[in-house]
Simulated scan of single mutants.
Amino acid sequence: MTEAITVMALRQGVYDHFREEGDVFEIRKEDDFSAFWMVKVSDAEALALQKAAQRQPEASRHVVDTTVIDNSELEGLRIQLAEKNAEIERLTRNVPGKQADAPEKSAADVLKMANDPTVEFMTFKAAARKVLGDATPSTKAEIIAALEDKATAP
């Protein structure tokens, strides 16, 4: 069995779980080594790096120092988030195919779409699938025939 290899993360990465830059850990085999975000270190180097990390204050080990964010800054960020969410809602409200509260189209309505040059075939076919179900034919002529049958059926 191969011996574990001690490495240090040069940047953030994932090995078993998320690793931060500077984390020292062991990998199980040589194939797990990634020169992109790891560097091999000796056991002595690993011990020295761990001791140095323990001496460093917790707040300076993270990218964001949460001790300096005040409530007004948080409230400003919440307002920005609410504005962005409102904008997303406004933009997606009238997207074709996303209208959950729109009434179902009848076979006659979908037939009108077949002759409308502004309606693309896939939009027409999707509307026809809602009326005809999984048995929707693949060609436009067959779909029109099936819709006409459905529209004239008692």
Rank of each mutant, 00 (worst) to 15 (best):
T2R: 12
T2H: 08
E3H: 12
A4F: 06
I5A: 02
T6D: 05
V7K: 00
V7H: 01
L10W: 02
R11F: 05
V14D: 08
Y15T: 03
Y15L: 08
H17C: 14
H17N: 10
F18M: 11
F18S: 13
E21A: 14
G22F: 05
D23E: 15
F25S: 03
I27H: 00
I27M: 06
I27F: 03
R28E: 14
K29Q: 15
E30T: 12
D31R: 08
D31G: 11
M38H: 01
M38L: 08
K40L: 02
S42N: 11
A44H: 08
L47H: 11
A48S: 15
A53W: 09
P57C: 12
A59R: 15
R61Y: 01
R61G: 03
H62A: 15
V63H: 13
V63R: 15
V64T: 15
V64M: 10
I69K: 04
D70T: 07
S72Y: 12
E75V: 07
L77G: 07
L77T: 02
R78N: 09
L81I: 09
E83M: 05
K84P: 03
N85R: 07
A86I: 01
R90W: 01
R90L: 01
L91W: 01
N94F: 11
P96L: 13
K98D: 00
K98F: 05
A100I: 13
E104Y: 00
K105I: 01
M113Q: 07
A114K: 05
A114E: 04
V119F: 02
V119H: 03
M122A: 09
T123K: 07
K125T: 03
A126H: 10
A127I: 00
V131Q: 00
L132Y: 03
L132G: 00
G133M: 04
D134F: 05
A135G: 15
P137F: 05
P137A: 08
A145C: 03
L147W: 02
L147T: 03
E148W: 04
E148L: 10
D149M: 13
K150L: 13
K150P: 00
